[in-house]
């Protein structure tokens, strides 16, 4: 017990100890309007449709103590039925196409779809292959694109923050 306490005290608070992200290309006003209901809380369901797993690792990193995405009201939902947003990674393979359509239908409205990583945005290095039917926006409407191979966790945070920022002054 003392060992655990000692370790915790020694470690201290590590949240936020990461390099700042480059400013991302902004989200569209339509996407921000759609994200309005989720400004305080956003439940995210991650769907992998054929990525190389690097994007998943960076999504997982968001939950570690350094990025701690929950402090911004973002949490990972275990089922699409509990989700406000789908984060789709990968170029949408021929075998995952149907699962993506299903998961989109299962997610209750209002919902936003985020294409994460170059593969989801434009199929990346897998473009054109017989096994790939993407990109994501060929199958479901995409509201926000976060490019990068893979995007750094700080960049994902930044893009989510941008999307959900209140901009009363410009919107009214």
């Amino acid at each position: 017990m003392f060992r655990i306490l000692k370790k915790s005290i020694k470690t201290g608070v590590v949240t936020g100890q990461h390099p700042a992200a480059q400013p991302a290309e902004g989200s569209t006003p339509e996407a921000r309007e759609k994200a309005r209901p989720f400004r305080r809380s956003l439940a995210v369901r991650e769907v992998d449709t054929g990525s190389c797993n690097a994007c998943e690792m960076e999504m997982n990193a968001l939950a570690n103590p350094i990025y701690d995405v929950e402090r911004f009201g973002v949490h990972i939902a275990a089922s699409p039925r509990h989700a406000d947003a789908l984060v789709v990674t990968g170029p949408v393979t021929f075998n995952m196409e149907r699962a993506l359509h299903d998961v989109y239908k299962q997610t209750p409205d209002p919902k936003i779809v985020i294409a994460l990583g170059d593969c989801a945005v434009n199929c990346g290095v897998f473009k054109g292959s017989y096994g790939v039917t993407g990109p994501v926006d060929r199958h479901v409407p995409v509201d926000l694109r976060i490019p990068g191979c893979p995007p750094r966790p700080a960049e994902i945070l930044k893009a989510l923050e941008e999307l959900r920022a209140s901009r009363q002054s410009t919107e009214k």
Partner: peptide
């Protein structure tokens, strides 16, 4: 997640396919 990687390799030159190999399993 079958993306057809082995076929994609066949479209490339020996010297150029490193980025594809990096993305077999990220």
């Amino acid at each position: 997640k079958h993306r057809g990687i082995e076929k994609l390799f066949e479209q490339q030159r020996l010297a150029d396919a490193v980025p594809l190999a990096e993305r077999v399993s990220g």
